[in-house]
Design a protein around this nucleic acid. Sequence first.
DNA 1: AAATAAATTTAGACAAACCTAAAAAATAAT
DNA 2: ATTATTTTTTAGGTTTGTCTAAATTTATTT
Lengths: 218, 218
Amino acid sequence: MTHTPTEENYIKEIYHLQLVHGEVTTNSLATAMKTRPASVTDMLKKLRSKRVVHYQRYKGFSLTASGTRTALSIVRKHRLWEYFLVNKLGFDWHKVHEVAEELEHVKCEELVTRLDEYLGKPAFDPHGDPIPNHKGQLKKIRQEPISSFLPKQTGMVQSVKNQSPEILYLLLHFGIGIGSKLKVIRKFDFDGSIEIKIDKQPPFILSYQVAQNIFCTK
Amino acid sequence: MTHTPTEENYIKEIYHLQLVHGEVTTNSLATAMKTRPASVTDMLKKLRSKRVVHYQRYKGFSLTASGTRTALSIVRKHRLWEYFLVNKLGFDWHKVHEVAEELEHVKCEELVTRLDEYLGKPAFDPHGDPIPNHKGQLKKIRQEPISSFLPKQTGMVQSVKNQSPEILYLLLHFGIGIGSKLKVIRKFDFDGSIEIKIDKQPPFILSYQVAQNIFCTK
DNA sequence: AAATAAATTTAGACAAACCTAAAAAATAAT
DNA sequence: ATTATTTTTTAGGTTTGTCTAAATTTATTT
């Protein structure tokens, strides 16, 4: 079963919303897709007819098993391309999402297989998100936001939750990337901001909003 | 000015037909695009309104200067991706055209620049066709079909004119690729076929149809 | 120069993905 | 348990790129 790029974008977004919020609604999907609820309803009927979603009018919807597999294959392509753009072409990590949004729709199984091989079958993309393998399996890491760490604890950055270019650009500015080792110096209860130290750099302060998005292992 | 993938495909095809046959007509473009003359007329009006073509009804059409620049930038992307697929990912040369047809429509100037750098600014694609540089300039090589060579002459393969997967697959089978050194042993006047020798390989015979498509330098 | 043939264009329709406005169903509040 | 609010869906319309069938213009024959 093949899908149009638009269908693929819907499928991917349903997958993400299910993963992050546990559920999807017509409205939330419309917001995420920057479209209108009426358009979402149209697409849901189309996706149901293609057996991508379970859907009953007024009763909600969710990905079928096969729809989930499709979603994972799109996510896989997206993240492999992000890895390529950053690690082979030298792109800054906050610029790759947009380009990968286009590359992920290129239809060629052999391309994915060869790209994966060429990159050394990476398990995580440049933002620390897991790349599904060819069977759709994801590596998982136990990670917590740096905002939940206590003073004197050290964490290694594994991923960034919010992936807007804005936050990624901010982190680039602070010299924070995947693999950075962050030591919590102290926390300010007033606004939840945290003082952080990276080896050989002067300490700096992260706002609570930012700290919540930096996921680390201990 | 941005274009839809469909518009880009028309622009590229007009460029190719102009280059190869010296002119384009509504019918020839319709055939090349696998669509109907009526659809071509519709698109010509659209491309005229975008200043891509000069066009007067019933009087023919041709690319404007800016349309030609656009065409060259699409050709550039197509050929850079072909080079990437063959030389980095290890694709067989007869399989890359189709994939490059999709990749060429990805919109990101930085991607083209970085890809070009990463590949070492190649001047020719895997089929020997010149890759326009960032200014749209092409390297030219004086080359003739091996069918016009005389017995005992030797040529180095520079490009293949017809690029259908079928002929490329056939050449792969004979061990002929860009850079191969071919020595003409003899020519059969009856059907124009040619006996060819490649170092350390037994001689073999190429049909006139095939030999016409293999362009070599002396 | 008229008749015929070929090429091109117009007219009117269709499918995909979107829209607005109105109706229907589900949920929440009184 | 009504009423009010929110969510979702339907109805009908738009744009892009396509189509067929018919009309028009240009090119070729006789």
